[in-house]
């Protein structure tokens, strides 16, 4: 039995659900929108999840694709109700022998971009020179050395990547900020599903292509680069990952980060990624 947990209209979850439906796979979809009516219990006999009284034994689940919604965004009351459900589903996901896309501890692997840079380099990629500082002088010194630098969040909180304008640095005290050497070249987004890779070049003039007009062009990665992507996903414990690469003018491949819960459908022009996830779960 395959468990899908998320929102019905979430594009990646919907795409995988459709693919599994076409195969006639035994699927249980648990709607995260019903988190207030969801109930999970664990005792010495069973690990069970129920929605509106219909119970599912989690011990019967062979694979799961988890894309929970941020319950804090539901509004007052729900986060508290959701906390217990999240806690126990994560507990199950962490300890089960089932295939889980992705386990919570692996999902947490991008909570610190600089910490993730270590396995990225171990996988054979270059990473941009970076510093995290609240020291204005260090930032100006770093910028003078690199010419052009960008800033973004250090944590996994989504932020708009932008080029640093020293005129806009706060004059007073500031919190630590992540500043990186700007790498120029071709952006390539790679999705890894187990040992398969799917790559798209992103043609955009924007510093952060997610917030600029962009054209996506499927490309074939050099085998060695594809191998590095698979190696990185394995190091991070991710069965599904969205990896952001830049190939610079010298042909060096930089990796900016690996997203453990990628919304891959925008890059999935032929449905191959959703198929691969369905293959994995099946």
């Amino acid at each position: 039995m395959i468990l899908l947990w998320g929102l019905a209209n979430d594009p990646p979850l919907r795409a995988v659900r459709e693919r599994l439906g076409e195969r006639g796979a035994e699927v249980v979809f648990v709607d995260h929108a019903a988190v207030e009516r969801t109930h999970v219990r664990l005792d010495d006999e069973a690990f069970a999840l129920a929605v509106d009284g219909a119970e599912l034994s989690l011990d019967d689940v062979t694979a799961a694709y988890l894309r929970p919604y941020d319950a804090r965004l539901y509004g007052p009351g729900v986060p508290h109700a959701a906390a217990g459900v999240h806690h126990l589903v994560y507990e199950w996901a962490e300890s089960t022998r089932a295939i889980v896309v992705n386990r919570p501890s692996a999902e947490a692997s991008n909570h610190s971009k600089l910490l993730q840079a270590l396995p990225i380099r171990e996988s054979g990629f270059a990473t941009p020179e970076s510093l995290v500082t609240n020291d204005r002088d260090r930032i100006l010194e770093f910028r003078a050395r690199h010419g052009s630098v960008i800033y973004k969040s250090l944590s996994s909180v989504r932020s708009i990547v932008a080029e640093l304008d020293p005129e806009r640095l706060p004059a007073g005290p500031m919190g630590p900020a992540l500043i990186q050497q700007r790498i120029r070249g071709t952006n390539v987004r790679v999705h890894v599903v187990a040992d398969r890779t799917f790559a798209c070049a992103v043609e955009s003039e924007g510093v952060d292509y997610r917030y600029a007009s962009a054209r996506l062009v499927p490309v074939t990665l050099p085998a060695e680069v594809a191998g590095r992507c698979v190696s990185l996903a394995r190091r991070l414990g991710l069965l599904l990952a969205g990896i952001d690469l830049i190939e610079d003018a010298d042909g060096d491949w930089y990796c900016l980060e690996a997203n453990p819960s990628p919304a891959f459908t925008a890059f999935d022009h032929d449905g191959a990624i959703a198929d691969a996830v369905a293959d994995l779960l099946s």
């Binding site: 909570h111 610190s112 971009k113 995290v132 250090l154 996994s156 909180v157 630590p176």
Partner: peptide, 10 residues
């Protein structure tokens, strides 16, 4: 808090 957590983690 997320940023400081990420800082400490690294």
């Amino acid at each position: 808090a997320g940023e400081l957590h990420a800082w400490l983690s690294f």
